[in-house]
């Protein structure tokens, strides 16, 4: 058992088990950020108002920035950032199932914005005071920007819930995204979350971090008339149970497969491949 107060200055100071676990978590965070950025960018034109389109543009840029920052950190974890960003197949992406294909409606984008983006933010919050110090400054900047993503999701969730048609569209979109987002944190005994929490790299294990996310999104969902989460004596809980038999701790998802062909081409930048400079 190591001293839980000593800070780590670089990845090379971590034990192999911890380094692999943190590397996997960071890769999953980066992949989700990169794909989420694409989903935001799809609505820069065609959002319900000019202001909402500008917000999507800003959020897309934020997500790609966050993804880029995390990919670049992975060099110290034995990954080749160029390979990670441009050369992987669908099954090698560690992104949530809900990002595999393009959504077609604004409420679906708001589900990604409010549920998935917040899940990733809550995970980054667990790294805020990590023993792995190189991540501190990066997390602070990211969390600063994410405040507005959360408020955008919250504002639009409340907005759509004002009408009957809006509530129906919300219920469908959020219902479809729910299990995929809930699964992000992993089962209670998730291998990676347990190693990282024990080592003081993250501030909570899978159950604690999931609970933190539920407490963040639950009240807003409830106020919007959705019963995806409920508050009991122990805090906010969900009765939904992801199919953990298909859980991959490295990929942070319960389904096999990965981004569809179109998404894969976009996320890898296939059309611009000839422009890449080594």
């Amino acid at each position: 058992m190591s001293d839980t107060k000593t800070a780590y200055k670089s990845a090379s100071e971590l034990s192999e088990e911890t380094r692999n676990a943190l590397g996997a978590l960071l890769l999953a965070l980066a992949d989700n950020k990169r794909l989420l950025g694409i989903r935001y960018s799809d609505w820069i034109l065609g959002a319900p108002s000019v202001e909402a389109g500008i917000a999507c543009s800003a959020m897309a840029q934020d997500e790609w920035g966050h993804g880029r920052i995390v990919y670049s950190m992975l060099k110290d974890f034995g990954f080749d950032p160029h390979h990670l960003e441009h050369e992987r197949e669908a099954e090698e992406y560690h992104s949530a199932g809900v990002l595999d294909s393009d959504g077609t409606s604004w409420p679906e984008l708001i589900a990604l914005n409010f549920l998935l983006d917040t899940a990733l933010t809550v995970q980054f919050e667990t790294l805020h005071e990590s023993r792995f110090e190189p991540i501190h400054y990066k997390v602070r900047k990211l969390l600063d920007e994410e405040r507005f993503h959360f408020e955008h999701g919250r504002g639009w969730t409340a907005r759509l819930a004002e009408t009957e048609a809006g509530r129906e569209a919300l219920a469908e979109a959020f219902g479809n995204a729910w299990t995929s987002c809930l699964a992000w944190f992993g089962p209670d005994d998730d291998a990676i979350a347990t190693v990282l929490a024990t080592e003081g790299i993250v501030s909570g294990d899978a159950a604690a971090t999931r609970g933190r996310w539920l407490a963040r999104v639950g009240p807003v969902l409830s106020a919007a008339g959705m019963d995806l989460a409920r508050e009991d004596a122990d805090g906010w809980v969900s009765d939904a149970e992801p199919n953990w038999s298909a859980w991959s701790t490295e990929r942070r998802r319960v389904s096999t497969g990965g981004p569809d062909e179109d998404t894969l081409a976009r996320v890898r930048g296939d059309r611009n491949r000839s422009l890449l400079i080594d």
Binding site: E51, I54, A55, F148, E151, G155
Partner: peptide, 19 residues
């Protein structure tokens, strides 16, 4: 100015528009 349906979104739109 921004046009928004509620103060939450007005704050987000203002911050992201006038950056």
């Amino acid at each position: 100015t921004v046009t928004a349906p509620n103060p939450d979104l007005a704050r987000v739109y203002a911050w992201q528009t006038y950056d």
